[in-house]
Design a binder for these strands. Structure first.
Lengths: 243, 243
DNA sequence: GACGCATACATGTATAGACATCTCTATTAT
DNA sequence: ATAATAGAGATGTCTATACATGTATGCGTC
């Protein structure tokens, strides 16, 4: 009889969800195995069936479990996935690759928004945006040129912050209380111009991975537009797609 | 007073969800606007509050709505196209670009799985897999070389099907009853070898977008492993990321 | 006018139960 | 032996209710 902790103020469905997740990750529940029925789980945890269903529903959404109507709930076969569609800052990306992130600021200024930037950030053309351009390093080697645009009205004092000591624009934005939720990113191949080639230490016309991304807070407000040019020999890009 | 259709056997929460979705897409509910409270919606549709919450929860997951505890539920600012993380076949991708898909079969055979393929498809090395290699065309121009591997035991009669007339492997697999659910795709840059350069009509050593993808059915069984080499001047790649 | 507090109302969590629908199995009838 | 049927047990939908918790508002006090 597993008792849920009554002391801490964590919802029961969250506690059950995390217990199930742990059992799956530790192979107590093996891939393909049938879970106890919802009624059995409800009895076991001393909660109602609806609470169990809620816990299970989360894990089904994540792809850890699947249901078969009339038959039962089962552990899915593979789980390497989840983290792949996680929205990461370039800082976090490099950390994940096991390298030491570094940064070199190229420029930092307030500018009127061009029409393209205004459109992405839902501003009027000419509204002030903070333009922050830097070279991202991994283990001391240049890997990406990044250029971010943030509406100035969202964080008027951003310039005064020490952007050099703060390793990630995301950290800064989140510390301002923006709950970054999702982003749309478009990736394609472009060829290095002279300046980019020099900064990234590649040949002119070498292929680069070009990505542009708009990041949205949870209320759908665009917070950030980033363009990035990255060395094609360093980056790969893994995502999870759903049909 | 909107009545839900009692005749059709569609769950009420689905009906309410789709009505709300329609009102959002038609701007009856405008971005930023507050929805009626859950209790009001429940009265309006003559259902319980839990049923309304379920409908709303779906749309929150999709990013169309967001909630503020104690305040209300609101329409999000932008409708980021959900379609960006949709798992599409190459056929569907080209259709979406507004081009006419074509295909030229390069080879079709049953082979023992290499260790790499076996690992991706959760097979034993040497198990039979169907290897299907083709050139994908868009408006008659070659754009991708694709090479799919499917465990033979999943569809023993695949070879007899007329793969030439069926424009998409996905269609075929779904017609066999596989509920394709999600895929993990890794994308990077590689350089064209002699054969690839000739087929894709680019120079040798030209950069190509290399993608490998494992597709899973809803029970987590891997159904399909694809490698693709695509012309970098044709493809871009848009995804939605969440934090 | 500024502050604090009570209140109304919003969403968040949880319950116990009812009935529907789907699947599989065991029993019964042919 | 085979086919039809009944039943058990699983998930799917839905209700009505209770209480917890967060937020804005308006009122009274200072």
């Amino acid at each position: 009889m597993n008792l849920l902790s009554e002391i801490q103020d964590i919802p029961r469905y969250v506690q059950i969800r995390e217990r199930l997740r742990e059992q799956i990750s530790k192979h107590v529940l093996k891939p393909g195995q049938k879970l106890p029925s919802e009624n059995e789980l409800a009895k076991h945890y001393h909660v109602s069936r609806m609470t169990v269903r809620r816990a299970i529903a989360c894990l089904v959404d994540e792809g850890l479990l699947y249901r078969q109507h009339g038959t039962g709930t089962f552990v899915a076969q593979l789980r390497i996935e989840r983290d792949y569609t996680r929205l990461l800052s370039s800082y976090e990306q490099i950390l994940r690759m096991g390298l030491e992130p570094g940064m070199q600021i190229l420029s930092l200024e307030v500018r009127p928004a061009t029409s393209k930037v205004a459109q992405y950030l839902a501003l009027q053309e000419g509204d002030s945006v903070i333009r922050f351009e830097r070279l991202r390093l991994a283990d001391g080697q240049p890997v990406s040129i990044l250029c971010s645009y943030v509406p100035q009205k969202l964080c008027p004092q951003l310039l005064r912050e020490d952007l050099a000591s703060c390793q990630s624009l995301f950290q800064l934005l989140e510390s301002y209380g923006f709950r970054l939720k999702r982003a749309v990113q478009k990736t394609e191949i472009r060829w290095a111009d002279q300046v980019q080639a020099r900064l990234l230490e590649v040949k002119e016309q070498a292929p680069l991975i070009y990505a542009e991304r708009v990041t949205f807070a949870d209320d759908g407000t665009p917070v950030d537009y980033v363009e990035g040019w990255s060395r094609a020999d360093v980056f790969s890009f893994t995502v999870v797609l759903s049909r």
